[in-house]
Amino acid sequence: MEKPCFIMLALINLLTLSFAACGTKPHVPTQAEIAADRQLLQELQQVLDCIDEIMQPTDEELLVDATGQLMEALYCADIATATRFATDTALGLLLYVDEPEINHFKIKRTDVFTNRGVAEVTINHHATLKLIFSRNSARNEWRLTAVN
């Protein structure tokens, strides 16, 4: 194509686009544009899913959370709250642990199985307890059921 013709064609195209932009005629997306949009949406959804996955706590995080809240409740002698995270039997077992007060606690490690979790906790830099948690299903909260 000759150079002047190319320039003319470019000017005509520009003119056409200018009219379209004025809204005289709605733009009908091309198949390529539709495909590109779909691709973009898919990618966005994948990013959202990824963020969602990051935001959802893992079982281990849930167990650490339950252990922490239980220990905090015991630290404050708040038995009403502690009963949310511990059965009466487990609370009774805590009587046998020779720690009159809880002045400090540290969760050393956690092991999570399907509906059973073990949190190893050190109390007052002294006694190490294995707190055994259970739950009926993955949707239920962990509850302390035994102390070793």
């Binding site: 009963t83 609370l91 009587l95 009159p100």
Partner: peptide, 11 residues
């Protein structure tokens, strides 16, 4: 102690 006494009260 407060903790153990409260556990006793509860149980």
């Amino acid at each position: 102690s407060e903790l153990k006494y409260n556990i006793l009260l509860h149980l």
